[in-house]
């Protein structure tokens, strides 16, 4: 099903999304990838406060290429989500509403998605030029010293993504593959 949704996302909306839904996201989202996650994790371990209130926020695993003059951002596609798995359950428990990335998630992350009525979207990996056209503003809001890995606040319009793991734990990566699988486990 095609859906237009807003970011930040509320739990009711997140709960209504099903694995396989094609969504267009409009609103405000934040970027964070490896180094920003590690820093947030360390801050929480020391009892500190995060630079962004995560409640309902959509976090995009992305580190853009530099913007040319007069442009909002450079190429801006998703990075592999599993590298964030170690840090994700804690962020979901703090209220993070959804994530946009690509690739598989750990069982611990899937449990945390279910526990918090959250959702995991995939954007098309390697389509960074196309996806950058849906970003209308970009501002570094924390960890500027991390360069491409800084936390950015983005305004997005009709950003295309696919629900891969929904709040019930359904996983499109597992179900969709079965439909087209012809090579048997032993390679025959």
């Amino acid at each position: 099903m095609n859906r237009h949704i807003e970011a930040p996302i509320d739990k009711k909306e997140a709960k209504s999304l099903k694995a396989g839904d094609y969504v267009y996201i409009t609103g405000t989202i934040y970027t964070a990838r490896d180094a920003a996650h590690k820093r947030m994790y360390d801050i929480l371990a020391e009892g500190g406060e995060l630079p962004v209130d995560l409640k309902g926020q959509v976090i995009y695993y992305m580190g853009p290429s530099p913007a040319r003059e007069g442009r909002v951002i450079g190429s801006a596609g998703p990075t592999t989500a599993s590298r964030m798995d170690k840090y994700t359950p804690q962020l979901l428990d703090l209220g993070m509403g959804a994530m946009i990335g690509k690739g598989k998630r750990s069982p611990e992350v899937i449990e945390a998605i279910k526990r918090n009525d959250a959702v995991y979207f995939a954007a098309v990996g390697g389509a960074g030029a196309l996806l950058s056209k849906c970003i209308t503003s970009s501002e570094v809001v924390a960890y500027e010293d991390l360069g491409t890995e800084a936390i950015r606040k983005l305004t997005v319009e009709n950003f295309p993504a696919i629900v891969v793991i929904d709040s019930e734990g359904n996983n499109l990566y597992e179900t969709a593959i079965k439909e087209y699988c012809r090579t048997e486990e032993n390679g025959r």
């Binding site: 580190g63 190429s75 596609g77 990996g125 390697g126 960074g128 030029a129 196309l130 491409t148």
Partner: peptide, 15 residues
């Protein structure tokens, strides 16, 4: 994506 990249000089992929 490939057309946009070459026409507008935006890298094909951010990586």
């Amino acid at each position: 994506n490939l057309s946009i990249a070459s026409e507008e000089m935006i890298p094909i992929c951010q990586d």
